[in-house]
Structure formats: structure tokens, C-alpha cells
Write a protein that binds this DNA or RNA. Structure first.
Length: 303
DNA sequence: AGCCAGGCTTGGT
DNA sequence: ACCAAGCATGGC
């Protein structure tokens, strides 16, 4: 790829664990490298001894979008030190060394998590890929002929790679707001289609301002996000944590519920309410990081 | 309060 | 090869 090559010197950064931990849904692994898109920029990332090798078509003097996305400036040790010193947390940190939180663009993150409801990660990836392939704008620095018009699931005879991830930006709220529910259902999102459509329209009409949410405190921001169709407490917390950087957000899904029950209340069955209260009080100022460690630990090591 | 919404994956036969 | 059950969140 013509363009910029740079190494971000960073310790304790496990790229694979981070990109595979259910925060983002469009990154693809090829060998030791990962390719994906941040905003309108295409990037290829490779784990190296000294840190992360980044290749992108953007000019080298302006890579803050990528530093910000990767959160390379976060002092992970300092974050880990704030975790409670108990056996489950120590095990999770030990098992997932180098796991990080990314900082995503709010709209892509929000839309992805609206689509995530009652879906497993592989299926979310498929839905998001279809949506982007059909309605996303081509990325800057990518020639037009690489964007072959494909019909997604209608070209089953093509090798799988041909239908995967062309370099396109995630479709804007305006673009999605102009679509029909049928267009969206055809991306296999089922009952999530009207939710995504309504949310896109609420945003396109200016009823909800995703940028303004940055200025609010955690609970105000949560209330605001939950005005969007298809956004309950869990999805709001995912967006607050993964896009807005509210480290105190602690999304509770069934995996986390299972992890808390199994690791912290192995004897007696704890009510959902009790688990929520525990989650909100036990993990400290970077509870969201703790949540990510427990989530990934549960999914990859315990199950 | 409890049921419903798709479609892919997993497990049993 | 096939069918049933499992997944997992918000809206009504």
C-alpha cells in the first residue's frame, strides 16, 4: 500500500485480543495483520515486538485519528492498578494481558450495537459487512474499480473472500435514514431493521445530537442515548464505554452476568438486581476496563 | 410480566 | 443430512 508506515511504540497491547473482543465488528485478520477502517481511513495494523506497525494512506503528520482509535497513550498499568485485588480479577488480567479498549466513532458504534441485540459476534459481523458493502461510501485513497458491485448473498458461487469487506466507510445516519425498512431487512437484520432506521432518522433530524453527548456526564448521556429506538441500558453502556470513553460504564450482558455469578457468587444464586449493584460498586473508576477483561476471559478461557 | 422478533451455530440423531 | 434448540436484548 502506498502511503504512511509508522510504528506506535507501546507495551502491553494485544492487538488480536483487542480487535476480537466484541468491541468492533469490521476488522479482519490476515496472518499477523489486521485491516480495517476508521472513519474514512483504511488502515493495516501489525503486531510487532516494539509495538504496532500501522500502514495507511493518510499523511504521516495527521495520524491522531489512529492514535485516538487505538488509545495508544493510555497507561494500561495505571488502569489495571485500580482494579479490585481479588482472585477473579487477577485471573482475568493474567489471562488477557494487553487487552485494551478502543475509542470508536459514536455513530458506527451505536449502529453496530443496535444490530447486536440477541446476536452472536459472528452474525453481527455479517450484518454490518452487508450494510457497509451495500450502502457505505468508498474510502479515501481507494480506487473506484476495487468497489465491484456485488449482491452479497445472491452471489453464493463466488469465493467467500470476494464478498468480504471492501474498503468503505460506515454509512452515515443520513444515508440510512433515507433507506427503507426492506433495504435494511435485506441485510439480514430482522427486527433490528426498524430500530436502526428509527435511530438513524432521530439523528438525521437532529432530535439527538451524538456530538453533544460528549459534553454530558455519564447518567445524562445514558438517558439521552436511551431515547433512541432499540437502545436500552446495555447498548447505551456499550456506546458510552467504547465510543465516548466513559470508563465507569459497565455493560451487563448475559456473559458478564454469568461471569459475575460464577466468579463472585459461586455458592448462592444472586438476583439480577444484586449483580447490577455489585457491578456498579465493586470495580472502581475504570469499571469498563474490568468488564472487558471479565468478558474476554469468560468467552475465551472459561465458557 | 412475559412473550416475541430472524438467522446462524451447535448438538443430537 | 437433517431438525431442534440455543443464542441474547429491547419493545410492547
Amino acid at each position: 500500500m502506498a502511503g504512511t508506515k509508522i510504528i506506535f511504540r507501546v507495551r502491553d497491547y494485544d492487538l488480536a485480543a483487542t480487535l476480537n473482543s466484541g468491541q468492533v465488528f469490521r476488522w479482519r485478520q490476515t496472518g499477523n495483520s489486521w485491516t480495517g477502517i476508521v472513519g474514512k481511513n483504511f488502515a493495516k495494523l501489525t503486531q510487532t515486538d516494539g509495538g504496532i506497525l500501522a500502514e495507511t494512506s493518510a499523511p504521516i503528520e495527521d495520524l491522531n485519528w489512529l492514535r485516538d482509535f487505538l488509545q495508544v497513550k493510555v497507561d494500561l498499568d495505571a488502569v489495571l492498578k485500580t482494579f479490585p485485588d481479588d482472585a477473579p480479577m487477577r485471573a482475568a488480567v493474567c489471562a488477557c494481558r494487553g487487552l485494551r479498549l478502543l475509542r470508536q466513532e459514536p455513530w458506527e458504534c451505536l449502529a453496530s450495537f443496535i444490530l447486536s441485540s440477541t446476536k452472536q459476534i459472528v452474525q453481527i459481523r455479517q450484518i454490518v459487512a452487508l450494510l457497509c458493502e451495500r450502502f457505505g461510501e468508498p474510502c479515501s485513497g481507494v480506487s473506484a474499480e476495487r468497489r465491484k458491485p456485488l449482491r452479497g448473498d445472491q452471489c453464493g458461487f463466488l469465493p467467500k473472500a470476494a464478498t468480504q469487506d471492501l474498503p468503505v466507510a460506515f454509512p452515515t445516519p443520513q444515508r440510512i435514514a433515507a433507506l427503507s425498512e426492506t433495504d435494511l431487512r435485506n441485510c439480514k437484520m430482522g427486527f433490528r431493521a426498524p430500530n436502526l432506521l428509527a435511530a438513524a432518522r432521530q439523528i438525521a433530524e437532529g432530535k439527538i445530537d451524538l456530538e453533544k453527548i460528549r459534553e454530558l456526564d455519564y447518567s445524562e448521556a445514558r438517558t439521552e442515548l436511551m431515547k433512541l429506538r432499540g437502545v436500552g441500558g446495555k447498548i447505551a453502556d456499550c456506546v458510552l464505554l467504547f465510543a465516548y470513553g466513559f470508563d465507569s460504564a459497565f455493560p451487563v450482558d448475559v456473559w458478564i452476568e454469568r461471569a459475575l455469578q460464577q466468579l463472585y457468587f459461586p455458592r448462592r444464586r444472586a438476583s439480577e438486581k444484586r449483580l447490577r449493584h455489585f457491578a456498579a460498586t465493586h470495580f472502581g473508576p475504570h469499571a469498563g476496563y474490568a468488564q472487558q477483561y471479565l468478558f474476554h476471559y469468560m468467552r475465551t478461557k472459561l465458557k
